[in-house]
Design a protein around this nucleic acid. Structure first.
Length: 514
RNA sequence: UCCCUGGUAGCUCAAUGGUAGAGCGAGCGGCUGUUAACCGCUAGGUUCUAGGUUCGAGUCCUAGCCGGGGAGCCA
């Protein structure tokens, strides 16, 4: 059952001006007139059509070859239905394999759930009453890789999230995780597009840092020192430190970054608005549905922006992502609305339809203390808003995303701009129903003396931040920025409950499997 | 880290201290348009681990391991 179409394996074999299908299953034409992006990914283009594209605009009468994985198979005496999924979209392509197909008796038995197959056939319109528009009538069926039904863990039934987390290498083959991967991809592209269209420069801030305390949580240490040997050794004298970091790889103690903000500011005050988009690491012992030890964060930083500008950009940013995902991943979003959270589409539309309510911390405290609602933790000016408080504000009182700003300075890091009242700083948190804090940001302190006294207040040594302080010494300007947790954005978009299920391979305390 | 809760068939779950079960999945058979297909039959268990109480423990007690939910930290 050799398939002639499979001989197209190298990009050179695809004639110029040929119609091909990109990774989203969209049709495109490559050739001399095509734009650069196409050339740069030419080698990755699939010579086979994708299911997404066939379901959308495949024409009956076309003979073609598809390949993918069997989701399920339904047998009749004279033929079988194969549900073929290639990951290009949620839906499967229904394959009709008649018993007259060469080798049917032996081959069809191997086409079990999870097996990979390649099929050549003719696209035909479905009989009236069928769910789908077209289906493929096989002329040949080739099983590329079997999946022993006795041991293949995925069944055609619902699995618990815990179980799927244990088979994180196979869960992308489920509807939910396939949809999650596509939404994640669309969000990532939307984020780059949002900033690129506004002239932001994408800056790659370091992953490894020797700033001892960036003020955003516990850090993972990075070292090439032989810890096992050190554990066995005894100090030469009481005075000598057991660990000599001058002998370590960087000559001093190093960590994985918890934020690219400080380095981001240096480029923002040179090349204009910038953004970072990369992995971030927090060694907090957090066991929640909203925290990961390794997550992806987007941090824009804008010169000449004050707090109001910052809030406006954050709102536009979130709305743009929501709009793009609703438009570009309609089928996946309908799935999330149907199977994961029945209110998710209405929630997202609600986000698009309203301006984010801007509430100062002081106003928020007033609302919470006069609303009559009983809270486990009492509210008073100067305390951190608890999750229950934030939830009340965004889910009950306003029932839409809100931005809380001007927090007490005792609650916030040293780099946030002090207000003239002497009590508050120009911080802002964007809170959304269901997820809570999704963005945290601020206008930055741009006055040298104020920054130095704030560092003192926070027990930080300005010498450790000499290069950061220099920005206020040389050509200082007002500037602002914020951080968006990518995974929290995906939670908001999909209605998924656990942050461990919106990242391919979650890392959290006690778990870095795969 | 704290509080709550759970661990039984491949998966999802039942089982008053008294013979460990169902649905789905799997295997086999049937069915000429199915679509979480349907119908019939069959197989499938160290009840997380180690102790203890008891005539008898999946069930009660102690400890441990692992998971889930909530809180804190934050994005």
């Amino acid at each position: 059952m050799v398939n002639p179409a499979s001989s197209i394996s190298k990009i050179e074999d695809i004639p110029s001006q040929e119609t091909v299908f990109d990774f989203l299953g969209r049709r495109s034409t490559i050739g001399p007139a095509a734009d650069e992006r196409w050339y740069s990914v030419k080698g990755l283009l699939m010579a086979l059509p994708r299911v997404a594209q066939l379901l959308l605009e495949g024409q009956p009468g076309t003979t073609l070859t598809v390949a993918g994985w069997v989701r399920t198979r339904r047998d009749n005496p004279a033929f079988s239905f194969i549900e073929l999924n290639d990951g290009s979209c949620l839906s499967n392509l229904q394959i009709v394999v008649d018993a007259s197909v060469p080798g049917y008796a032996e081959t069809i038995k191997l086409a079990t759930t999870g097996a990979s197959v390649r099929i050549e056939g003719e696209l035909k319109a479905c009989p009236a009453g069928a769910k789908q528009r077209v289906e493929l009538h096989a002329k040949s069926l080739e099983v590329l890789g079997v999946a022993d039904a006795k041991t293949y863990p995925l069944q055609k039934k619902g699995h618990s999230w815990e179980f799927l987390r244990g088979i994180a290498h196979l869960r992308p083959r489920t509807n939910t995780f396939g949809a999650m991967a596509r939404v994640r991809n669309t969000v990532s592209y939307s984020i780059h597009r949002f900033f690129q269209e506004r002239g932001f420069v994408y800056v790659h801030t370091p992953i490894i840092t020797t700033s001892d305390c960036e003020g955003a949580g516990e850090m993972f240490q990075v070292t090439t020192l032989d810890l096992e040997r050190l554990a066995k050794s005894t100090p030469a004298s009481n005075a000598a430190p057991l660990v000599d970091y001058t002998q370590d790889f960087f000559g001093k103690k190093a960590h994985l970054t918890v934020s690219g903000q400080l380095e981001g500011e240096t480029y923002a005050t040179a090349v204009g608005p910038i953004y970072t988009f990369g992995p971030t690491f927090r060694a907090e012992n957090s066991n929640t549905t909203r925290h990961l030890a390794e997550f992806w964060m987007i941090e824009p930083e804008m010169p000449f922006y004050e707090l109001d500008d910052n809030m406006q950009l954050a709102e536009e940013f979130i709305k743009t992502i929501v709009r793009d995902v609703l438009r570009e991943r309609a089928e996946d979003m309908a799935f999330f609305n149907d199977r994961i959270d029945k209110t998710i589409l209405a929630t997202l539309q609600n986000i698009l339809d309203h301006d984010f309510k801007r509430v100062s911390y002081t106003e928020a405290v007033d609302i919470l203390t006069t609303c009559g609602q009983k809270f486990e933790y009492p509210v008073e000016w100067g305390i951190n808003l608890q999750a229950e408080h934030e939830r009340y504000l965004t889910e009950k009182h306003f029932q839409q995303p809100i931005i809380v700003y001007n927090y007490p300075r005792t609650l916030k890091p040293f780099y946030m701009k002090c207000n003239d009242d002497g009590k508050t700083v120009r911080a802002m948190d964007v809170l959304v129903p269901g997820v809570g804090e999704i963005i945290g940001g601020s206008q930055r302190e741009d006055e040298l003396d104020t920054l130095l006294s704030r560092m003192q207040e926070c027990h930080l040594n300005p010498d450790d931040y000499w290069w950061y302080v220099d920005l206020r010494r040389y050509g200082s300007v007002p500037h602002a920025g914020f951080g968006l947790g990518l995974e929290r954005m995906i939670l908001l978009l999909t209605g998924m409950q656990n942050i461990r299920d919106v990242i391919p391979y979650p890392r959290f305390p006690g778990s870095a499997e795969f």
